[in-house]
C-alpha cells in the first residue's frame, strides 16, 4: 500500500542518516588528518543528490492527481458542497441557497467524478476506505470547483472526512457513500 511504502522509504532514509551521523561523530574520537579532498567529495555528493531527486521528480510528477483519468467520460458525477460542518453529496447540482444531499451509490471499476466546492470556509474532501486508509483527497474552496476523478476497484463503504481545519466541529464533519 502507498502509505506503507512511504513509511518504509522514510525509515530507510532515516536509517542511513543516523548511521552516517553516528559514524562521523565517533570518527572524531580517533582523529587524524580529517577528510581528504572534501571539496571533490562534496561536489559528488551534490551531484548524486541532484540525480536522485531529478529521477524522483520525473517519476512522480506524472502521477499527480490532476492528470488522473483525464481523457475519459466519467460514468457518474457526484456534486459535493462542503459547509461547516456537513457534506452535501448529490447526483444533482446543489443549490447553495437550500443545499440538500442524498445517499450516494457508485459503480466499482468505473471512473467517477466528484465536483467539490465549499459554501463557506475551506474544507477538505478526503476519501477513506473501509480499513481507514486515506485513498485520495481534494480541497473544497469557496468560489471554485475542484474535480476529483477516481476509479474504485473495491466495493464497500467509503468514508469522507474533512481534512482542512474548518472550526469547532471539524473533527466530526463527515459523510459516507457505497461502491457496488
Amino acid at each position: 500500500m502507498h502509505q506503507n511504502s512511504i513509511l518504509l522509504l522514510f525509515f530507510f532514509l532515516m536509517g542511513i542518516a543516523l548511521i552516517v551521523f553516528t559514524y562521523i561523530f565517533f570518527s572524531s574520537k580517533k582523529a587524524d588528518q580529517g577528510m581528504s579532498n572534501p571539496l571533490k567529495k562534496r561536489f559528488w555528493f551534490f551531484l548524486i543528490l541532484v540525480f536522485i531527486l531529478g529521477i524522483f521528480a520525473s517519476v512522480t510528477i506524472p502521477n499527480s492527481p490532476y492528470f488522473a483519468h483525464a481523457g475519459e467520460t466519467p460514468a457518474k458525477v457526484v456534486h459535493v458542497a462542503a459547509a461547516q460542518f456537513i457534506f452535501y453529496m448529490s447526483e444533482q447540482a446543489i443549490d447553495p441557497a437550500k443545499p440538500s444531499g442524498h445517499p450516494i451509490e457508485l459503480p466499482a471499476n468505473e471512473v467517477v467524478e466528484f465536483r467539490v466546492t465549499s459554501l463557506d470556509v475551506n474544507h477538505g474532501f478526503a476519501i477513506y476506505d473501509e480499513t481507514g486508509r486515506l485513498i485520495t483527497q481534494t480541497q473544497a474552496m469557496p468560489g471554485y470547483v475542484n474535480r476529483l476523478r477516481y476509479k474504485f476497484d473495491q466495493p464497500g463503504k467509503y468514508h469522507v472526512l474533512c481534512l482542512e481545519y474548518c472550526g469547532i466541529a471539524h473533527q466530526i464533519m463527515r459523510t459516507s457513500f457505497t461502491v457496488n
Binding site: F56, T60, I61, N63, G124, L163
Partner: peptide, 22 residues
Amino acid sequence: VIGGFGAVIDATISNNVVLHNT
C-alpha cells in the same frame, strides 16, 4: 536532515494525496 526527508516525501504531489493534512 531527517525532517527534510519527511518533507521531501510529502512535497511530492503523488504522495501528498495520501499525506496532506494527516
